[in-house]
Write a protein that binds this DNA or RNA. Structure first.
Length: 601
RNA sequence: GGGGACGUAGCUCAAUUGGUUAGAGUCCCGGACUGUCGAUCCGGUGGUUGCGAGUUCGAAUCUCGUCGUCCUCGCCA
């Protein structure tokens, strides 16, 4: 008679010595088998763990015979009795004090040889892990990550529920908007030639919910951006999206701090201190060259423009003359770095567009007076005293310089700083450096398009005192925007929004959106603003990134069950794929000839 | 679109830098074994070296193209 697999008595990580003697039914996957001829062992696995089952040919010849044929990943059901292992305890297994004397065994599903072992210490490549994702997801590590993800989502929902938030679903089929990332488009069958856009974020819907009087909204929501991928960027990703009415910056920040604190506690049992640190955008850029600095290590940027002005070094003088700066990073004890190491870093820098990486070392000269050596020493030696005084560098240190525009210097030195920290092993483990970056500029100047672009998005409110600047010097206006960073990763961002139609129109105008365009694209928002809009603001947290950080993963793909590859395809299903000609016809879509040709090639 | 790393057995890797029949571990198959748990021992199967050209007496190795994976710059309001 078959074992009733729907009546399992225990999970496979559950049994202990106090269960001795009980008859149990276990179901799961065969992790491994060890056939000793006279005796056979099978490890049975589910997401809770592993239990060893023993089959004895004398007492249960039939089951023993079948057990000999069981292979990895076969799905089986076992009926037997819990017995103590005596001297054969396995201290590596939580269930290692007991085993099952197997009396009955059913093979529920025979498995092909798996492409890789279901185990944490595999080093299978991403290709096969993603192609055989079902097998990959069985691994204990992936099981833990998916369950961590669930706990974090639940902690967030619980928290916001307690804080009076209401979860409201917003449309996935929406309208394409100008600015921002590329949209994923969905053709409309009913209106051939017209398209829905998948949301990059529910931004406008949540603002309208505030105008509609829901006061506090949150949603764990899928968002889409058709841009190139990175280890921490997927084309479809999940946000914890929230919005609050009648609030100021402080209210949103402290509310979110509570949520993050709760997620750390319930997710990984870590207590994080609130309030989090804060830093202005300007300070972050000046000191670290990036608006999401990793605060776990030093290597800060220092401005040495004034010192370098006095040198005859051509590339420094040229940079300064054209309005640029010279900054540097002093690497304490970096004098021991080899030429090979610094050259390697220079090559990496050139790979992202830098012209080079002027370096020099501080050494102890004659009479114990520090002087410069190697690299660009000869150009800087004349201002050595000033340089050391300005930077605090001393004998044994390495100085990495960078001339150029402020933006380029920030970019390149941020890269250098991060790489140096890795190379010199300066990044402490188990440190959670949460920080708010505030006071972002409203706009940045787009040199190509010769116009201002929103640094956050066009609905971000300017600081009250900066509203006059919108007319006089928009580039100087700061916003009520804030980003939450963790160890150099952006976890989320938000702002207080514009709640006055007049100000909103002004911003559209500054962004080069004509009144007609603004009306065409955002009539619904401007209307909503006209009919009574409360002051409001909110934030969106990158949920996948939070799971990635708390799960100590290096890639978003490890915390998303079915992620896309770097080329934005799903290796499991092979999406995206072709559609039938009839489908295109119905939508009124003709592929461009060159696209057809490429497909047929 | 640019830069970089990589692609060899189902999986993870090697191949003395262009030289004999492309090896190892693991998995898998067969055999032995009553206390294994990374089982062990004996034997065995398994290869279009991603694909396509080229150079060469000779290519996994060099060149070009192409496809794919990963990292990254641009991009990501």
């Amino acid at each position: 008679m078959a074992i009733p697999y729907n009546k399992r008595t225990h999970m496979n990580g559950e049994l202990r010595k106090e269960h001795e003697g009980q008859e149990v039914i276990l179901v799961g996957w065969a992790q491994n088998y060890r056939d000793l001829g006279g005796m056979a062992f099978i490890d049975i696995r589910d997401y809770t763990g592993i239990t060893q089952v023993k089959f004895n040919p004398q007492t249960d010849p039939e089951s023993h015979k079948l057990a000999g044929t069981i292979r990895r990943e076969d799905v089986i059901a076992v009926r037997g009795n819990v017995i103590l292992r005596g001297e054969n305890v396995n201290p590596k297994l939580p269930t290692g004090e007991i085993e099952i004397a197997g009396h009955e065994l059913d093979l529920l599903s025979k498995a092909d040889t798996p492409p890789f072992e279901v185990s944490d210490d595999i080093d299978a490549g991403e290709d096969s892990r993603l192609k055989y994702r079902v097998v990959d997801l069985r691994r204990p590590k992936m099981q833990k990550l998916m369950r961590l993800r669930h706990r974090l989502a639940k902690a967030s929902r619980d928290y916001f529920d307690e804080q009076g938030f209401v979860e409201i679903e917003t449309p996935v089929l929406g309208k394409s908007t100008p600015e921002g990332a590329r949209d994923y488009l969905v053709p409309s069958r009913v209106y051939p030639g017209q398209f829905f856009a998948l949301p990059q974020s529910p931004q406008l819907y949540k603002q309208m919910l505030m105008m509609a009087g829901y006061d506090r909204y949150c949603q764990i929501v899928r968002c889409f951006r058709d841009e190139d991928l990175r280890a921490d960027r997927q084309p479809e990703f999940t946000q914890i999206d929230l919005e609050m009415a009648f609030v100021q910056v402080e209210d949103v920040i402290s509310c979110v701090e509570g949520a993050v604190q709760r997620m750390f506690k319930e997710g990984i049992g870590v207590d994080v201190q609130i309030p989090f640190k804060r830093m202005t955008y300007k300070e972050a850029m000046d000191r670290f060259g990036i608006d999401r600095p990793d605060m776990r290590f030093g290597l800060e940027l220092q401005d040495i423009t004034a010192v370098c002005e006095k040198t005859d070094f051509k590339i420094f003088k040229e940079a300064i003359a054209s309005g640029g700066v010279v900054k540097c990073i002093v690497v304490k004890g970096g004098g021991t770095m080899t030429r090979k190491e610094t050259d390697g870093l220079t090559e990496e820098l050139k790979g992202i567009g830098a012209g080079g990486m002027p370096v020099t070392k501080v050494v102890e000269g004659d009479g114990g007076k520090p002087e410069l050596s190697t690299g660009v020493a000869k150009f800087l030696q004349p201002v050595c005293d000033d340089l050391l005084a300005a930077t605090g560098a001393e004998a044994g240190d390495l100085i990495v310089c960078m001339p150029g525009t402020y933006a380029d210097v920030c970019k390149y030195l941020h890269f250098v700083r991060t790489r140096l920290a890795e190379m010199l092993d300066l990044i402490p483990e188990d440190e959670w450096n949460l920080m708010w970056v505030v006071d972002f500029p409203m706009f940045e100047w787009d040199e190509e398009e010769k116009r201002y672009c929103s640094l956050h998005h066009p609905f971000t409110a300017p600081r009250d005192e900066d509203i006059p600047l919108l007319d006089t010097d928009p580039g100087k206006a700061l916003s009520k925007a804030y980003d939450l960073t963790l160890n150099g990763i952006e976890l989320g961002g938000g702002s207080i929004r514009i709640h006055q139609a007049k100000v909103q129109s002004k911003i559209f105008e500054l962004l080069g959106l004509s009144a007609e365009e603004a009306h065409d694209k955002f009539e619904f928002l401007l209307d909503a603003l006209r009919f009574g809009a409360p002051p409001h603001g909110g934030l969106a947290l990158g949920f996948d990134r939070i799971v990635m950080m708390l799960g100590k993963c290096l890639s978003l793909r490890d915390v998303i069950a079915f992620p896309k590859t770097q080329r934005a395809v799903c290796p499991l299903t092979n999406a995206p794929g072709d559609v039938a000609e009839a489908q295109l016809e119905e939508l009124g879509i003709d592929l461009r000839p060159e696209v057809k040709a490429r497909k047929n090639a």
